[in-house]
Design a protein around this nucleic acid. Sequence first.
DNA 1: GGCCATCCTGTAATCGATTGCCTTGGGCGT
DNA 2: ACGCCCAAGGCAATCGATTACAGGATGGCC
Lengths: 347, 347
Amino acid sequence: MSDRSGPATIRDVARRAGVSTATVSRVLAGIGNPKVETSGAVLAAVEALDYRPSAVARSLRMRRTNTFGLIVTDIQNPFFPELVQAADDAARKVGYSILLGSAAFDEHRAVHYLDLMADRRVDGMIVASSQVAEESWRWLSESPVPVVVVNAEPANVPITVITSDNRAGLRTAAEHLIGLGHRRMAYVRGLEGITADQPRVEGFRAACRDAGIPDADLIELRGDAQFAGGERAVSELLSSGGDVTAIACHNDITAIGALRALRAARIRVPADISVVGCDDIAAASWVVPALTTIAQQKADMGRMAVERLLAMLDAREGGIVPETIRVPMVLQVRESTGPARLGGIGS
Amino acid sequence: MSDRSGPATIRDVARRAGVSTATVSRVLAGIGNPKVETSGAVLAAVEALDYRPSAVARSLRMRRTNTFGLIVTDIQNPFFPELVQAADDAARKVGYSILLGSAAFDEHRAVHYLDLMADRRVDGMIVASSQVAEESWRWLSESPVPVVVVNAEPANVPITVITSDNRAGLRTAAEHLIGLGHRRMAYVRGLEGITADQPRVEGFRAACRDAGIPDADLIELRGDAQFAGGERAVSELLSSGGDVTAIACHNDITAIGALRALRAARIRVPADISVVGCDDIAAASWVVPALTTIAQQKADMGRMAVERLLAMLDAREGGIVPETIRVPMVLQVRESTGPARLGGIGS
DNA sequence: GGCCATCCTGTAATCGATTGCCTTGGGCGT
DNA sequence: ACGCCCAAGGCAATCGATTACAGGATGGCC
């Protein structure tokens, strides 16, 4: 009858050590200064019974779970794992764990996870998903549990946001291309309505304007933030005779799709056309030519999100004012960009 | 004083509805048949207070958390997210959630997560990581909580395993190449000691033997299951003058590295050399030429792992005998394989 | 020797739910 | 009109930890 019913409890330990549960708890927490024989007996009993305190019971009593919820748009998008890993690292370091939810592009799932995490009484939430309705943002911002939003910008809701500086990032991309002599360019946008879509084109356009390139000269195409969208957009561009020397894309996956379309059309990159992506996922350096891209500091963002949450927890009631933090993006030059050709594609 | 201290509890609801907590609990659980006015009052109170039962308290009382732990080798490896997503889908469908841990190639972290999940009293664990020491496997197999191991095969430990049929898979790969006329081939192995490494080479070799290709004719190279290893192994092969018409790789990332080395050497794929990978990650179809590969049924495996866990939970004490399930791998022909050239590389 | 401060440890309440058992009361049969 | 039975719902124990408070032993000091 050693383990009649599940793992050993604090009472089993107390009994075996011949002390009260209070003492066991105190010895393990290292408070008070127990006599050596007492703590010795407790530790021996702990060892013998292979006792591990139940986080469930502790959470109930302490009213905190030492858990943060993290909701991402889609765990299969290579952007997120790095964010998740960084958040997990930072959390683990201070004794927290991460409960992950992948919305898989589905608003209902996102809401489901919001509820789930509320039910689980997580101590804080990181929401890295734009699959969240207006109404849910409001609910989140009014919730008593600390929330940090990553890479989304709910309009008119006072809430802490950590986001890549998309506008500045794509401005950098444009400047890089313009510096290489490109003036006739195309931009493949992301999925309509995705948060980053708007600021990215705008940043790109702004740099063009500054360089004196007429708005009308920039060809805007619609992608879907996936491989297929990039491939389709660019092959349509080519078949409709669009004559550009550079293509910028909403993200790397789109850019990789673009590379494939160009290759299918026997157009050389970067000799004939330069391509630039955005995000810097691992595959960006695997493709040929390796993709020049604007890197998001995913790991930093994950770490910052957790740190922010911890700060909010400390400040409890002190009230940290919601703030929008823009993390710079950095230009990563690889092989897919080069000097603009002078003539047309056919030359 | 609406919410003096955190979320509403069942007692708040009971008070407001003028009933006991027992009744609230029963109404919400849908047991007994409460009078309409009672259940009406309860539901109204629930609504008004925005009451959500605490999963923490419930877990303590019910002695189950409705949570499964899932430990993966490295969430940044594109193989895992799909597994995670599938497991999460299957779990969510029956009211469970997944607590994720990424060992990040570190044995200590893997053990840390094992402990963490034990403390959290998860109802079952899926271990998709070979970063687990012999001793931990034994501990797991003796643990009273159901465990399913994915893509690892602890030796001499009675435990339920779900794994891709690596041997048969790579046999298929070899047969595909041999069918295309290849006889002088190279195989880039994975990281030494990684579980899948051995069976994969063996499967490949077995098919070669069956086709009458002398063992000595197969050139074996050591990679690291990453991009860099594939690239390095193949460029060394080329510079040492190895003359092959096909290269099989431990996994897709390695194969993508191989493609890059071949390209750098101006060797055409598949015209000069065919390349085949293994896993079928998303990037396999992004690269040029798109990679022929042996696909692992990642989603199936994730789903099966959860189903297995649920079955073990049902069978409680009935005792399901540990069993090793081999999931077939399927050949995915894309562009990187073709008929063998007749002459040498230089011809 | 007596008194008080100090140090350890035990007692019991508490966190928020679920559930076995018991009470209450209404309906129905005779 | 009386008694029986059953349905509805309340009481209180329980899950496994933490912690405020109380109490007993010990030692120091006068």
